[in-house]
Write a protein that binds this DNA or RNA. Sequence first.
DNA 1: CAAGAAACGAGAATCGATTATCATCTCTCC
DNA 2: GGAGAGATGATAATCGATTCTCGTTTCTTG
Lengths: 122, 122
Amino acid sequence: MQRAKQQSTVFRALNEADGPLSARELWSRLSGTGVGLATVYRALQRGVEDGTLESVEVLGGGVRYEPKNRGHHHHFLCSTCDHAFDLFGCVEGLESLIPAGFRMTGHEVVLLGTCDACGDAA
Amino acid sequence: MQRAKQQSTVFRALNEADGPLSARELWSRLSGTGVGLATVYRALQRGVEDGTLESVEVLGGGVRYEPKNRGHHHHFLCSTCDHAFDLFGCVEGLESLIPAGFRMTGHEVVLLGTCDACGDAA
DNA sequence: CAAGAAACGAGAATCGATTATCATCTCTCC
DNA sequence: GGAGAGATGATAATCGATTCTCGTTTCTTG
C-alpha cells in the first residue's frame, strides 16, 4: 500500500465516475486500495477548498462530489441503485415560474427513474 | 393548553404555509402553542401514512412536508432565509436530456435565489 | 364522576454522517 | 541514513435529525 498518494487515488476515482459520488460511494469504489474513509473525507474537503471539486446535493443521498470542470449540467437519479448520473443539456422557460419580487440566481433539475443497468435487470 | 388537538394545530400550520416546511421550521411556527417537537414529528408521520401529507426534499434543508393536494409543482429555495416556496407551472423538454436506455418516472426542479422579503432587505 | 385508551411534552436514546484524535508510516531534504 | 513535515488508517467523538420512553393529561363512553 502506498502512502501520500491516497488522495490522488481518490481524485482519480472521482474523475472516472459518470456522476457525482457520495463519500461512502466513493469509499466503496476504493475498497481494495486500503484507503480509509477519513482520507476520502480529507481529500474531498481539500478538493472543495482547492476549487477542483464541487459538492452537489442531488436528492435523498446526502452530499455528493464531482469535479468542477464539467460545466453546467444536471443529474439523473436512479431510484433502484440510488446512483446519480450526469446529464448534458439544460431546460428553457424557468424564468416564467418565478414569482414577482423574487430573484433567481440558479436552478437545479433532477430527473428520476431507472438507469440502463437497473432497467435491464427488472 | 389544549390536548388531543395539537396534531390538528400542526396540520393547520402546514396548510397555511406557502411552501413545504421542515419539522423544525414547523415547530418554530408553533412556538407559543405549547406543541412539542415530538408531537410535530408524530403528526407528520401520521399525515404521510394517511396520505394527506407528502414529504419532499428540496435541497440542503433535509426533509420538508406539505399537503398532498397541491398538485404538480416545484419549489423556489431562498438562499438567504432558507425557506422553500411553492411555484406553479412546470417546464418542457426534460425528455431530451435522458440518455438511451434510461426510463424517466419523474422530475424535480428547484430554483435558487432570494425571495421577495430577503431581496428587499438586502 | 370513573375507567380505559389515546395523545402529550420533555428529555433520553439512537442513528448516520462527518470530523477529530493519535500513533504510525512515508516522503523530502539534507 | 536521519530528522522533520505531512499523510494515513482506525477509531473515538461530535453533531443534527429523528425516534423512543415514560409519567402525566385529556378525551370518550357510560
